[in-house]
Design a protein around this nucleic acid. Sequence first.
DNA 1: GTTGACTCTGACATCAGCGGCAGGGTTTAT
DNA 2: ATAAACCCTGCCGCTGATGTCAGAGTCAAC
Lengths: 130, 130
Amino acid sequence: MRIGELAKKTGVSVRSLRYYEEKGLLTASRQKSGYREYNALAVEQVDTIRLYLSLGLTTEQIAGFLHCVLKSREAFCAEVLPVYESKLAEIDEQLRLLTSIRSNLTERIAAIKEDQVGVERVSQERVKEG
Amino acid sequence: MRIGELAKKTGVSVRSLRYYEEKGLLTASRQKSGYREYNALAVEQVDTIRLYLSLGLTTEQIAGFLHCVLKSREAFCAEVLPVYESKLAEIDEQLRLLTSIRSNLTERIAAIKEDQVGVERVSQERVKEG
DNA sequence: GTTGACTCTGACATCAGCGGCAGGGTTTAT
DNA sequence: ATAAACCCTGCCGCTGATGTCAGAGTCAAC
């Protein structure tokens, strides 16, 4: 099949498919016209790529083990676990940072609301006094 | 003071100070040489900018209310709360996403380790059998 | 044989804060 | 007065997957 059909079957843009090829994740033979020619396996291969991308891995990381996992189970591919674990550490770091920012934000939001209530109270008192 | 001194006092790079000016966060008068001239208030102004940046706000968002908060309390600046709240929503969305990815990752890591243990067991059995 | 749909490569744009360089002027200390 | 240290503007780079456009070739249907 040609690239447009693969794009439709996978829901991935033509641009992205070409990008995956550029990054060594996807290969295609060529028709004599120069058009890329994919076999049926390409569909699940693209699905696999998307799965790894959805885990936040970079194309470079995926390229490091994709060849292996397309043929064996992940557990047999020594490159996978270290990548997963470094990604996990990275995510935990981001979670720590985001959580910290979140807590600062909620604190400040609460402080503003307190302050506004205080102001309203003063306004109310002024109304009563007036 | 000149930009280098402000940079030292705030711990912010000269490059960043110029960037803040470009984004309308920081203004400076000019000496006749063309050099930027800052007054003492600039130090806390930069600290304020850094504080907002550390909350994950963009220079554009900060520019929207900085002028006000430099003169009044945050609660008096109507622009602040909506920005905080939209940032909070954004962070919660990122937390959801990261948490979901994290759980997928740990699942896959566990599956790999299970699989490897299984393989080791088989190896062990082979050793025993052999 | 022509039109329209498809494909090709190459390259720039994005988001954002900042690093860093080039080529030039200014200030300051010796 | 000269070197060192400082400052100026302007511009490219970076991160990374993808959108998008241009200019050109290919293929299918009518």
